[in-house]
């Protein structure tokens, strides 16, 4: 369910952010964000709303764990 993709925040105007992926831009609502999102952050976008901030550090760390198959890290 729930098609949602990561998009990068390019600018923020109140409850609305301009987000971008591969040159495609659109406006999404930030009403549901628990954490502060800033320009340059990636957010997960679902049905026109940002629902989660993607943690880039965490992503890189996860990837390292995946690559080394250190599954006990979870």
């Amino acid at each position: 369910m729930c098609l949602a993709i990561p998009m990068e925040i390019k600018s923020i105007d109140g409850p609305v952010a301009n987000v971008e992926i591969s040159g495609v831009t659109k406006q999404v609502r930030l009403d549901l964000m628990s954490e502060e999102a800033s320009v340059g952050d990636y957010v997960i976008v679902h049905a026109g709303f940002a629902i989660s901030r993607l943690d880039r550090e965490q992503a890189l760390e996860t990837l390292e764990i995946f690559k080394e198959l250190r599954l006990d890290a979870f």
């Binding site: 993709i5 992926i21 040159g23 976008v45």
Partner: peptide, 12 residues
Amino acid sequence: KPAVAAGCSFLG
């Protein structure tokens, strides 16, 4: 094109 793939990805 990356932009076509991206547009498609959020429209499903």
